[in-house]
Amino acid sequence: MNEGLLSELKKQGIFVTSLQELYNWGRLNSIWPLQFGLACCAIEMIATAASRYDLARFGGEVFRPSPRQADLIIVAGTVTKKMAPQVVRLYNQMPDPKYVIAMGACAISGGPFKQGYNVLKGIDRYIPVDVYIPGCPPRPEALLHAFMELQRKIEEQRLTGAGKADHLEASLPSEFPVPAFGEHDLQPPANPALFRPPAVERN
């Protein structure tokens, strides 16, 4: 709609908006995270929700213990190979639209524990990630930043047309296969449909 007309209407006390804006506005101010912590980063996540940093200012304080009621999973901490199938399962149990924040070096790539035999080298091997926050652990401010980044992303999602949001696209999957425990490693070690690491090119 025409900007001038909008402001003109506003002066008259008439507020006009589109369904898409209203819908996204509602969603982005009431993101319910899953109450799910893995390791050290989870403590910073709790600190973010606690008194000083107060995630409630952004509408994200309603931590849900059940994935069925959550919009956002904050993967806060080291994902071990033993835990990875559970994380994927939790993600699959969340209703659409769902978002993922990978919090901390460990969730992104294995972080300081990358050489570990039982450490998954990044949760994006099995589930798609919306926002990555580096840090070990990221400060609460960094998590707030990631949260705002996610809100921005939600704000820009479109309901119709060619570039509409992924969760509205029936052809795109909303669940991903859960890896199985193998004799030496997880089977498969990464979801090839999701994870395509760059090949290192060297002489």
Binding site: L38, A39, C40, I43, G77, T78, T80, K82, M83, Q86, P112, F113, Q115, G116, Y117, N118, V119
Partner: peptide, 29 residues
Amino acid sequence: GYLHRNHEQIGENTSYLGSMPYTDRLDYF
């Protein structure tokens, strides 16, 4: 075992000083 991060093995592959930051992450409180 859901948070078994192989701290001990990494400690054996790192120098004495290098293990110091890893100890922070044992009991992270």
